[in-house]
Design a protein around this nucleic acid. Structure first.
Length: 428
DNA sequence: GGCATTTGTCATGCA
DNA sequence: GCTGCATGACAAATG
């Protein structure tokens, strides 16, 4: 009986005779594939409990390593995770799908950070200053003169001289109100620079026009009054349709409201009227050329609506060039922001993927170490079984077979034969 | 004032 | 050909 058990175990373990200690190639796959029969027959699988005791004749060090190190080889969460392959077997070529998954797995604070990127721009406060200072003595002219003299943000010559409003702006001072104390909206020279078509005069409802586009709102003068009631009083008192201007729209559009909102908290800090105007270049140019609609509409309107908007006004070549430049720059600015946001998101995705790959490498390394330890134990058991089997095998004369002279070999039919060493069985 | 980062802009290519 | 979008490169603004 004992002999039969030894033979059965020997047959099972003999199948493992061909095992070699895995080479140092971390990507060697064969040993891992070979783990399967070892688990089913030898009972040394990674995820199976060690029910058999290590033979006393085995190296005590190996057994100690096996017992002590095994729990660390495969953390419980890894052993119990039936979808572990989903995490560790994805080839790199599936990066696209992983990227998508990573997108959804981003930490909320990080995503929030990304989403809020580019939301706070330096342009905040543009209107807050312009609302106040455009009505301050001398500020408009100073601002425009600043634009004319400073080349900060000026076109680098990419636009043709005729197409660029640069040249047109140089004639701006003549457009400015002679009376510095008069608000821009009060200027009566608008019609000289930009005349709405006669058929449209008085028929355009700017309230509807503004509110007809999503994301834009048309604030009433009532909710504008808290900002600077005195400043807006002349505009509010106008009873006939006032040709809106770029500056006017800046104050009225939603972006302007946001800026105004931010301004409200800063308003008490305004101590003097000498704060410089912080209109950006395009806003200053639009102001100078009296563009009759908002920069937001110039940039955000669909092309058809934008074209229709242009048909509603008679614009000079300089104005048209400026409007198209503003639209181009505005769209490109948004595109650049989106591009940078995507770039950062890609970096985050790649960092996450790198972390996963590192974890996978660590897991495989532990698995490989565990395999090597198991293999050493198996070899130890095999040696013991050899000794045990040979101790019970005797020839016809009752002599023991020498392990040095004979070996056990398994044929294709599954039988194990005792053959002299250096002898190959037929069918082997 | 030097430096790194952010932002706007231009040029270019693609759809 | 026009338009919008994406992106690298550059420069100015900003902290």
């Amino acid at each position: 009986m004992e002999m039969d058990l030894a033979w059965q175990e020997l047959m099972a373990i003999t199948e493992l005779q061909e095992f070699e200690v895995p080479n140092e190639n971390p990507f060697e796959a064969i040993p891992y594939l070979s783990m399967e029969p070892m688990v089913s027959q030898g009972g040394f699988g990674m995820s199976q409990p060690q029910s058999e005791s290590i033979p006393a004749t085995c190296d005590a060090h190996s057994a100690g390593v096996y017992e002590n190190a095994y729990p660390e080889m495969m953390p419980p969460y890894q052993r119990l995770n039936p979808h572990m392959d989903m995490h560790y077997s994805l080839p790199v070529s599936h990066g696209s799908s992983r990227m998508l998954a990573n997108t959804q797995a981003l930490h909320p604070p990080l995503m929030s950070l990304l989403e809020h990127m580019n939301m706070t721009t330096r342009s905040h406060g543009i209107v807050k200053d312009s609302v106040i200072n455009l009505h301050c003595t001398g500020q408009i002219k100073q601002a425009c003169a600043d634009d004319l003299e400073s080349d900060s943000g000026l076109s680098l010559g990419s636009s043709p001289p005729l197409a660029s409003p640069e040249n047109a702006v140089h004639g701006v001072p003549s457009y400015l109100p002679a009376d510095r104390t008069m608000g821009y909206a009060e200027s009566e020279s608008i019609g000289e620079q930009c005349r709405m078509r006669q058929s449209l005069l008085g028929s355009v409802d700017y309230h509807q026009s503004y509110s007809s586009y999503p994301g834009t709102s048309y604030p009433t003068t009532a909710n504008m009054q808290p900002i600077n009631q005195q400043t807006y009083q002349p505009i509010a008192s106008m009873k006939q349709p006032v040709l809106p201007t770029a500056l006017h729209d800046i104050q009225l559009n939603s972006a302007g409201l946001t800026r105004l909102g931010s301004y409200q908290s800063m308003y008490p800090k305004q101590k003097s009227s000498s704060v410089p105007v912080h209109l950006n270049r395009d806003e200053r140019r639009a102001l100078a050329l009296k563009i009759p609609f908002s920069l937001e509409k110039i940039v955000n309107l669909p092309v058809d609506d934008f074209s229709e908007l242009l048909t509603q006004f008679t614009l000079s070549d300089a104005q048209l060039a400026l409007v198209r430049d503003i639209r181009r720059r505005g769209k490109n600015k948004v595109a650049a922001q989106n591009c940078r946001k995507r770039k950062l998101e890609n970096i985050v995705h790649l960092e996450n993927e790198l972390g996963q790959l590192r974890a996978q490498r660590e897991h495989l390394s532990r698995e490989r170490l565990e395999f090597q330890q198991n293999l050493a134990i198996i070899k130890c058991r095999l040696s013991d079984l050899y000794t045990q089997v040979f101790s019970q095998l005797r020839d016809e004369e009752g002599h023991l077979y020498s392990v040095d002279e004979y070996s056990l070999q398994q044929t294709n039919d599954g039988n194990i034969y005792l053959v002299p060493r250096n002898t190959a069985l037929e069918g082997e």
